[in-house]
Every structure is written in structure tokens, then in C-alpha cells.
Design a protein around this nucleic acid. Sequence first.
RNA 1: GCUUCUGUAGCGCAGUUGGUAGCGCAACUGAUUCGUAAUCAGUAGGCCAGCGGUUCAAAUCCGCUCAGAAGCUCCA
Length: 644
Amino acid sequence: MKITLKGDVVKEYENGVSAADIAKSIGMGLYKSACAARVNGKTVDLRTVINEDCALDILTFDDDEGKRVFRHTASHVLAAAVLRLFPSAKYAIGPAIDGGFYYDFDVEKPFTSDDLEKIEAEMKVIVKSGVALERFEKEPSDARELMANQPYKLELLEEHAAKGDKISFYTLGEFTDLCAGPHLMDVGAIKAFKLTSATGAYWRGDSKKAMMCRIYGTAFPKNADLEAHLAAIEDAKKRDHNKIGRELEFFTTADCIGQGLPILLPKGARTIQLLQRFVEDEEQSRGYQLTKTPLMAKRDLYRISGHWDHYRDGMFIFGDPDDETKECFALRPMTCPFQYQVFLNRKRSYRDLPMRLGETSTLFRNEDSGEMHGLIRVRQFTISEGHLILRPEQLEEEFKGCLDLAKFMLKTVGLAEDVTYRFSKWDENRKDKYEGTVEQWNEAQSLMEKILNDLGVQYTVGIDEAAFYGPKLDIQIKNVHGKEDTLITIQIDMLLAAKFGMQYTDSDGSEKTPYIIHRTSLGCYERTLALLLEKYAGALPVWLSPEQVRVVPISDAHHAYAEELVAKLKAVGIRAEADYRAEKMGYKIREAQLAKVPYMLVVGNDEMANGTVAVRARKEENGGVKAFDAFKADILLEVAEKRL
RNA sequence: GCUUCUGUAGCGCAGUUGGUAGCGCAACUGAUUCGUAAUCAGUAGGCCAGCGGUUCAAAUCCGCUCAGAAGCUCCA
């Protein structure tokens, strides 16, 4: 048979050789680093026997799929070690994930960090002992017998059996696992690994099902790579906004105020104000009208929108929600139905559309206690909210405008390269979560798909990620821990307008129901600030820095000059302060540097005599001596251009 | 909400097997007037997150509550 290898090299082999044999024939070096093979585009075990012509790649740890196979095998080593130390443990699943792997166990007592050390030591023993890793298949009936004591495996087994699949197993010494593979040929290559944490996780990701004990770990062929990986993770944590945001005094929290209710300190409040002004001004220039709507409403409003049914538990409610004889209010968890009242204010014509409404809108959501995280997930937050009320034929154009605005925002704050796009669809098997008919969903989703494809947006599809009233384009971003959140969203809604009786008179005199786009320009300001702090490690671009210039007079004799400079900078809108304390300049510079102030202006006798400033930028320490007016012109330009 | 961990002065931390608390930085006061990342000395600051329990005795052991972290689940 003919095997087409990398680089379109074709080699002849006898039928019945394994992928591993082919790797060996190419070179023992390749065989030793091989993790899996790709046959006609499908990742398979190296044990796979090849019987016909095909395209075959040998995958190593350098390939993403190779990494996954390597780490998935490491998860089996983990499970084998756990079963040696905790023979009564029931094992569930152990996949590779980005950056590592995990394995879920049902054990009587959750694993402690001491346990992790012991398990890791046992894994080392298993890897060193060179026990073989073997694959075999069984009929479902025999497989059931083999896994009789493993309830989670039995559950998985039944699903595979129902599909008519053969049931495959991998044996690692005395440990046998139901597993589709693929796996490494043996575990000897897993030289560098580390168990990183033990946490809880629901079986099958269902909060109604049992809580398993999950062990996370990572593995590499080389120790140096493991060390580098762990160091990179530690390094990323130093940028955690929840740490530096507090250290740099952008925000704080108070036990007596409550969870998810951050206090924005002067610096945080200033940066958010700058972002808000930027968004509001930009929206105005793009034809948006600003609204200010109430922060609360009677339950009646949320009943019309459907939020009362879908999200009542997530609202802050005043009064007894079940007592129909008395008024009951709730803080608003979204702006939609409030802004719809703007449209409903009077009879609307097709000439009023598109109506673009924007609002810097504070929302309240009673998130579950375990969900809060710094400024990223909070109970009170302010978003760059907006709704576009449209004639159907305006949908594509306006959607494009929303995306263009979002991209412009991302580019301006410097996050454009850090986001991914997700087309969030409903799950037709979970109709209770969504409103509207199959036809309406199909229409809205195909419309969005067409728009996204026309615009050439590179996106992933998220099933069961839609809003209850329609599909979304979610612009996603990861924090320093790798956890993904939605930064910006653009949603097509074909349901709520009808619920609120929103209509416009078309050119032919007929009454029509408009389409609505729900969208944000820059998402939620708290979250955006958090991601900016992480992106820039606290050193925000000059235009967003709460303090842009700190003047450092060398001694008392230079205070008057410093005062004069600060006044001149403030007069042109530059946020400048001077450090008049009786400290040495080295000390003042250290503090300004740690506070990430973009520019320090050191002034002493020379500068005072010449009308100059000695510039020290936080990036390049020696900015040279400049005429003060030249510095002022430079920074004004930098701010005006919103340079990153 | 669930699992695990954590909670000592504004911040970062010590506090051995239970015997009512320290260090560094910051703050304040004084001295120092200094040329690019920490001048010196002194002073003050804590119901050891809160409440309850065990004990002759609790920062330390136990329970509950609150708050913080990681993960899971959720996210209009």
C-alpha cells in the first residue's frame, strides 16, 4: 500500500503495518517522540494497523493533537496512581485540556494537597517502572463485567453500546480504563509532570448530579518546558486585576457592603469615566441617542419581557413577589424593556428607524455567591448598553455598524488582538430555556449566520449560549487565569418587540413589528477595566491613566516651579500632580514608578533656570531633558491620538 | 449554589503541642533639602473577620455566618 507522508513523500509499505512501525521506519528519533498519528486527517493511536493507502502524519508533542494524546496518557497515569493509593476510588473521565489534563474521581474524602504529593510520587514510580500500556476491545456484555465496580464507567459504556460502538480499553499495569484513546505507546516519555490542584466538579457538568473530586495537572516531555510553563502561569497571576487593581488602588471591597459590590476608588472611577465619555461621544457621532432610564421597575415590566419567568431568582426584588395585592419592584437586571419605552413614547413611523438608543446603564443581578470575581463578575455593574430598533431590511447594515463600533472600541483600547468571536445559538433540545418558535429561531440564526459570513467574521459556534430571546455574537476574552468571559455582545431579537406591542407605520401605511438589536459598545465597564489592567499589568495607556504626569521637585526650592508646571498641564486637561514631600527624589521616583504613572518630570535648578523638564517615562527611563512646552505638546498629542 | 482552601494593624507576613500578639512596608512626628527605584530617628495603630461553643484558659480546637481564592455549575 502507498502511504503519503509529510511533504507529500509517498512510501510503499506492506499491508498490516502499524502507524508505530511506519514511524520507526522513518527514524527511531521520530518514533520515540511520536505521540499519535493522523490518518486521512483523523487523529489515531500509533497502534492502529493500516491496511490501505492513506495520508499519514506522525504527531509529536509539538502538534496540538500530539500534546493532547500525551497529556491524556498522563491522566491515565494519574488515575493508576490514585487507584493504587485509594483502591476504593471510582474513576470517571480524564481528558486533556488546554495546558494540561484532569481526572475526576469519586472518593470518600476529597484529596488534600498532601494527597496530591503522594499521588505525584506514585505517578513517578509508575512512569519509571515502565509498565506497558495496552489497548484491547470487548463486546459490551464482557465490558460491563470488567467495569462492574465502576458506576461512572458503566454509564459511559451504556452510551457507547447504544450507539453500537465497540468498547475499547487501555491497560496500564494493573489499571484498566474504559477509553477511546488514542494514547502513547508507553508512559516512559511522560518525564515532567505536576499536579496543580484538586477541586470539585459535577459529574457530566450537571449541578444536579454528584460532585466529583477533580485533580488537575500538566505534563511535558522535558522538565525545562514544565518549569517554563509553571513559571509563565505564576507570571500571569502577577497581572491579575484582582491583585494589582487593589494594590494600585483602582478598587476595593468591604465585607459590610457585600459580595460582588466593588468600591471604585478615585483611580478606578476616573478610568471608567474616561471610557464612558469616550463611548458616549463615539456613539453620539454614530447617530445614537442617549437615554437615562430608571434603575428599577414594577414586576409588571419584567413580566412583559419574560425576564420575570426566566430570571426571577437573579433579581433583587423589593416586596413580596408572590403577593399580587401589593406593588412589587425589582432593580433592573437589564435595560431592554426600559429603552423600549422610549420607542413606545409616541406613534412611530418607518422614518424614525433605525432608532439607535444608547445608555450608560447600571444593572443589578443577584449572581450566585460562588460566581463573583474581582471586577469581572459582580452584582452591580455599568454597561455601554444600547438597542437598535429597525425595519427588517436595515438589520444587516445596522448589525455591521454595531460590529464596526465594537471593533473600533477594541482597537482603541488595545484589546482587538485578544478577543475571539462566538456565534451563540440556542439548543433546540432545551426549548424550555428559550422563547419563540423553531421557525423564529431558525430565521434569526440563519440571518445572523448570513451576516457573519458576509462580513467574514471568524467565529466559533456556541450551542446553548443564546439569550432566551435570540442568538448572539459574543466577543470573548480570556483573563489571566485563562477563564473566558463575554466582553461585548451583539444580539438579534425577533421576539421582544411583539411582546411590548412595539409597531411602526410603514411607507405603505401598514403596521409592522420592528427587529431589535441588543448590543454593547465596550461591554461592562468594570469588566473592561479589569481586562485592561491585566493586559497592561496596571500601566494603562496614557489617555486612560488616572494620573498622567507626576512632577518631582528635587528640593523645596523647586516647589514653585513644580506648581507652575502642574497648573499649566491641568489647564490643558492633563491629569498632573506634584510630589512635594520632603523625601529624596529617588524615593519619589520609586513611588511614581510603582504607581505606573506614565511620565515623571524631575525638576531642579537646571530645569527651573531653563524652563525645561527632565522626563522619565515609565517605559524608557531616560526621556531626556526637554523644553516644558515641547513636553506639553507631545503629551497632548499622545492623549488626543489615544496612543497605546 | 456546590467542592476545596483562606481570613492576624492600611498592605505583605510571623505566631511552635491552646497560656489574651509581633516583623517589614505604609501612616504620623521630628531631623535631613537631596539629580533618576527605598535618608535617619521616634510615635501611634489590632475585641486576631463576626457570632456561638469546648476549656481554668482560644488567634490557635469545634459549629454557624460574613468575606476572599481556585475549580464546577450559572450568566438576560
